Amino acid sequence: MDIEQFVAQSIGEWRSMRSGHSLAFQQFEDVLSEISIKEFIDDTNQLRELIKASSQPNESHYISPFSMEWCAESDWEPDDPSEVSSGSCIILPIPKDEQSGKLLRSVGYAESVAAESEYRFLDDGTFILKTHYDQSIAEERIWFVSDHVRCRSSVLKTSEGSGILQASFASEVRKISV
């Protein structure tokens, strides 16, 4: 597996069921999400700005940019249980070699700020993503069980990496058009 194959296999509409354990709040959460992953071919200026705002050199070679939109409904919303969370981001892979590289995101996973992650692939095709934020460190694993089913696990740690704040697991099923 390389980043081009991973992105190509991820393109589509997904239904996600995630279970999260918040150790900080001693809370369990179920989240149902609709996720849309598309090739990003719209605006190369946005991609250049994403690189410019990162620690990567301006002439960085990127491949397979994509966008992601999500809409999530959680069973644990302290203020309003019917509240729906949604968002979108642009994701830009910058390979270092065939198995690893950087991933630039216009909006991060754990914190709603631009993020720069390190990625690598294990021999079995599992995608490993590690992101250092101001307040935390997110470690994610994504692997395909079949062409239309993938799994994702994540661990959110303190910024020093000494404590675990949250752990989650998601199964994601591609919507098939007929």
Rank of each mutant, 00 (worst) to 15 (best):
E4I: 11
A8C: 10
A8Y: 12
Q9S: 14
I11E: 01
G12N: 05
S16E: 06
S16Y: 05
M17F: 14
M17S: 12
H21G: 05
H21A: 06
S22I: 00
A24F: 14
D30H: 15
D30W: 15
L32A: 14
K38E: 06
F40V: 05
I41E: 13
D42M: 12
D43V: 05
D43Y: 01
N45C: 06
L47H: 02
L47D: 02
R48Y: 06
E49F: 03
I51V: 11
Q56S: 07
N58A: 14
S60E: 03
H61N: 10
S64C: 06
P65E: 02
P65R: 01
S67I: 08
W70M: 03
C71W: 03
D75Q: 02
E83G: 08
S85V: 11
S85R: 12
S86N: 05
I91W: 10
I91E: 10
I94G: 04
D97P: 08
E98I: 13
S100A: 11
S100F: 04
G101T: 00
K102W: 14
K102P: 04
K102V: 12
L104Q: 02
R105K: 11
G108S: 08
A110L: 07
E111C: 04
S112N: 14
S117G: 09
L122Y: 13
L122G: 10
L122I: 05
G125F: 09
F127M: 04
I128V: 15
L129G: 10
L129A: 08
H132G: 04
Y133I: 01
D134G: 07
Q135F: 09
S136V: 01
E139D: 13
E140L: 13
R141D: 07
F144A: 03
V145E: 15
V145A: 14
S146Y: 04
S146T: 09
H148M: 09
C151S: 15
R152N: 13
R152P: 04
K157M: 08
T158V: 04
S159N: 12
G163E: 15
I164D: 10
Q166H: 15
Q166W: 13
S168E: 04
F169L: 09
V173G: 09
R174W: 02
I176A: 11
V178Q: 15
